[in-house]
Design a protein around this nucleic acid. Structure first.
Lengths: 207, 207
DNA sequence: CTTGCAAGTCACCACCTAGTGACTGTATGT
DNA sequence: ACATACAGTCACTAGGTGGTGACTTGCAAG
């Protein structure tokens, strides 16, 4: 093992991401992290100032919320602008959902935000806010928004619902008694997906 | 202090509810709980079999999800049935939101569900499923549901969105940079409320 | 070769944790 | 009066936690 400050710093950061993704943010301590990174725990204090510093660095360098590209097809898409607005909104929230399926760190960062206090949760919230602002700006620039439709509120609402479904599915708290619609099942998810389509079409399509 | 088994059992349960509501489910240990309840920790093992037993008992005896009454105005309300269906759906999810504001234990139980593994989270999920099934049954019995509208999916979606807003607001992770709509502020909440109304009216009102 | 600095290691601290066995005190039934 | 059952207390183990000071190792410049 060469004596490389940046290499061990990166190793700590990588192990921290793996541990948090696997066991959650509050289940990782200094001792466990040092052992996983293969270094002494004193280096965590030297390079990051402590565990919270590691989480803050993780929030800076890792993608905690996906950057979905809004297919803004050129500038003057006034003809089919309204129709594609609904499709775009739907694809945005569905892509966010899909990102949760492959990003365990994303999921744990959202849980961390709800637990409050730690730097990872704050970073996740900041990233989400930034990405959503970009999406709204792009949609506003290229499409005519129907009056009496609050585009930000709609995006936040749909995004929040699918986020909570993803968190519940990941925690494995699926109710055994199939007494209610369960979004973690293929059938339940299909119904949610369809209802999202119904909502965005009802609000964003010009009739 | 009289030697009363049921009294101390109730004291343990009460203190557990207070501690969980105040500091979250994973921040309460056997030692802290025993001290808060004013008894020895060995009684926790005797009466509940351990900390998880306390959480399970808490899930049995406490209200972890509100029972909202759907004002089913008699039986044959076929005339204004469609119009009031939208209002009922909106009032249901808004009442659920309101319940979060006053129920810290509810909030922490939802967080516990997302963390996974503990009995309190499972109980919260079960209660939510049960209450939602009752609501759907009541709405279906007294109102005509428009075709191509998945009532369960709509309820789950709106309920999930407002639940996540409540959890985020309670964790105090409000983004300082007001770059995006923030449901924890009065203005942001007003816009969310309005958008919920727009959605339910667009989907559930007969035109 | 020596000096200095930074990377990394080790040993230790005080504290908290969950969990258990042995005990005391009190009330009840025989 | 005695025995039993039970509520409650105390003391203890074994292990884990975050955090710190003293140390050794390696590399590079003077």
């Amino acid at each position: 093992m060469p004596r490389d400050r940046f290499a061990t710093r990166a190793a700590i950061l990588r192990s921290a991401a793996e541990l948090v993704a696997a066991h959650g943010v509050n289940a990782v301590g200094v001792n466990a992290l040092a052992q996983a990174a293969g270094c002494d725990k004193v280096l965590i204090y030297r390079y990051f100032g402590g565990l919270d510093g590691v989480l803050a660095a993780l929030g800076m360098e890792r993608m905690l919320w996906p950057r979905v590209e809004v297919d803004s097809n050129g500038g003057g898409a006034d003809r089919d602008g309204d129709a594609s607005l609904a499709e775009l909104m739907q694809s945005v929230v569905l892509e966010e959902w899909a990102a949760f399926a492959g990003g365990a760190l994303m999921l744990q960062a959202e849980v961390a935000e709800l637990e409050g206090g730690n730097a990872l949760g704050r970073a996740a919230a900041a990233q989400r806010s930034e990405r959503h602002a970009e999406i709204i700006a792009s949609l506003r620039a290229n499409h005519r928004i129907p009056p009496y439709v609050d585009l930000e509120a709609l995006l936040e609402l749909l995004s929040a619902a699918l986020t909570l479904f993803a968190l519940r599915a990941a925690s494995g708290s699926a109710t055994k008694t199939a007494r209610m619609l369960e979004p973690s099942t293929p059938e339940g998810w299909r119904r949610i997906e369809k209802t999202v389509g119904t909502i965005v079409r009802a609000l964003l399509e010009s009739e």
